[in-house]
Write a protein that binds this DNA or RNA. Structure first.
Length: 427
RNA sequence: GGAGAGAUGGCUGAGUGGUCGAAAGCGCUCCCCUGCUAAGGGAGUAUACGUUAAUAGCGUAUCGAGGGUUCGAAUCCCUCUCUCUCCGCCA
């Protein structure tokens, strides 16, 4: 949520910033409703004050044993006027809230201009795509040939966009998760958390997935439905809900491994082959809760933590700064890490690291006490994948494949693979 | 799933219709006193919104959430959520 004070005071500037995303914010209409709200609120509060004063008088008169009937008569109309004003105020407030919840975050100044994916700016490339000396296969071919990856079985029970993994391939994904969690908790200072995978709508509103992206979520049919988390960002960031931190408590760094569930509405035909885009996938998530002045630097740190994983795995990748048109709803700035996939001969997103500024914090009422003023102020939140395990698995399969179809095991994963050198039939 | 009890400020805990945003204690902050320490005295100590140059005042709201009764609700009524105890079930 954008600071309402900023919206009121600088609606046109806000509209200008949001236009960089291709988002059309009708500042004039917003200000009109806001004016109405202000007038109604003043009126309502004056009437409440009048009513309170009268009630007090009546109480005192009654205590003195006086006749209160004339006083009651005097208040009679106040109540009706108050009810009417309150009803309209509620309506106007709700309209304002709908607008405010629908507004994406302001973009940081250094976000590149552009309309879509093609306008993203590559910042750096790390590692060289390997020269295989043979035509590299994609993960579907590799996994299926090994008998460890089975889309048909998954389709039989759950339909498309699910996969079954077996044996050493399933184990390799677990190894990736263990490796990532250990690096982040032991070397990067994160606290590991185990969190709910089913959350209420409020939690998703807090992080910005709702109300705008209802269609992307899976949810239950309960009267108050549960939503399956699309990312651990949701439960981890919600840990800060309604919290007022002392300045000394920040930064707080959380990590968690969870499955993620996405309905992938509107992505029909995209990435239908393989495990790139699934309804259910595993991810290790990183979340930072920081003070406002620290968030820009924290984005660099968080991104470097995700990069560490790719570097240790020996996977070639590049870092891209998303342009205004491609950046997510709640983020003010985003770096994507894209890993090289030999099977597709292109870089594909494996981590997205974003600074949300105070956007989520306002929705969550996540605050920090300013040590100078003593007043609570919104914290800043950041999150990034560190990294997506399903896609990391694909990347390892494709980058570590051998001519014989077996898959070498990256050095750092061997402790979790029983010391084996490769996945596949032994000779 | 069944039965019962509860939810009040940073914490403990009073408060069953009227000056209660809320006693008291603890904690915390500042000041005074005291030649260290301990003890003592005083003041302050929620959040949001509005008004405002103001983190000064003033107003409004908030005692789990939402609705209702009333001139007036922490207090009465309804619905919901959560916590605790017991029973059942269960990994």
């Amino acid at each position: 949520m954008i600071d309402p004070k900023l919206l009121r005071g600088s609606a046109e500037e806000v509209a200008g910033n949001l236009a960089r995303r291709g988002f059309d914010f009708d500042a004039g209409r917003y200000l009109e409703i806001e004016e109405r709200r202000k007038a109604l609120q003043v009126e309502t509060e004056q009437l409440q004050g009048k009513r309170n004063a009268s009630a007090r008088q009546i109480g005192q008169a009654k205590a003195r044993g006086e006749d209160i009937e004339p006083l009651l008569e005097a208040v009679r109309t106040t109540g009706e006027r108050l009810d009417a004003a309150e009803a309209e105020l509620t309506e106007v407030r709700s309209a304002l809230r709908d607008i405010e919840l629908g507004l994406p975050n302001l973009l940081a100044d250094d976000v590149p201009d552009g309309a879509g994916e093609d306008d993203n700016v590559e910042l750096r490339r790390i590692g060289e795509p390997r020269d295989f000396g043979f035509e590299p296969r994609d993960h579907v071919e590799l996994g299926t040939a090994l008998g460890l990856l089975d889309f048909d079985a998954a389709a039989g029970m759950s339909g498309s966009r699910f996969a079954v993994m077996r044996g050493d391939l399933a184990r390799l994904q677990r190894a990736l998760v263990q490796f990532m969690l250990d690096v982040h908790t032991r070397e990067h200072g994160y606290e590991e958390a185990y969190v709910p995978y089913l959350v209420h709508a409020e939690a998703l509103i807090g992080t910005g997935q709702l109300p705008k992206f209802e269609d992307d979520q899976f949810k239950t049919t309960d009267e108050t439905p549960f939503y399956l988390i699309p990312t651990a960002e949701v439960p981890l960031t919600n840990l800060a809900r309604d919290v007022i931190f002392d300045a000394g408590e920040l930064p707080v760094l959380y990590t968690a491994h969870t499955p993620c569930f996405r309905s992938e509405a509107g992505s029909y035909g995209q990435d239908t082959r393989g495990m790139i885009r699934q309804h259910q996938f595993e991810k290790v998530e990183l979340v930072h809760l920081v003070t406002a002045d620290a968030s820009a630097a924290a984005l660099e740190t968080l991104t470097s933590h995700a990069e560490t994983i790719l570097e240790r795995l020996g996977l070639p990748y590049r870092v891209v700064s998303l342009c205004g048109g491609d950046i997510g709803f709640g983020a003010n700035k985003t770096y994507d890490l894209e890993v090289w996939l030999p099977g597709q001969a292109r870089y594909r997103e494996i981590s997205s690291c974003s600074n949300y500024g105070d956007f989520q914090a306002r929705r969550l009422k996540a605050r920090v006490r300013n040590p100078d003023t003593g007043k609570p102020e919104p914290i800043h939140t950041l999150n990034g994948s560190g990294v997506a395990a399903g896609r990391a698995l694909i990347a390892v399969m494709e980058n570590y494949q051998r001519a014989d179809g077996r898959i070498a095991i990256p050095e750092v994963l061997k402790p979790w693979m029983g010391g084996a050198e490769f996945i596949g039939p032994s000779d």
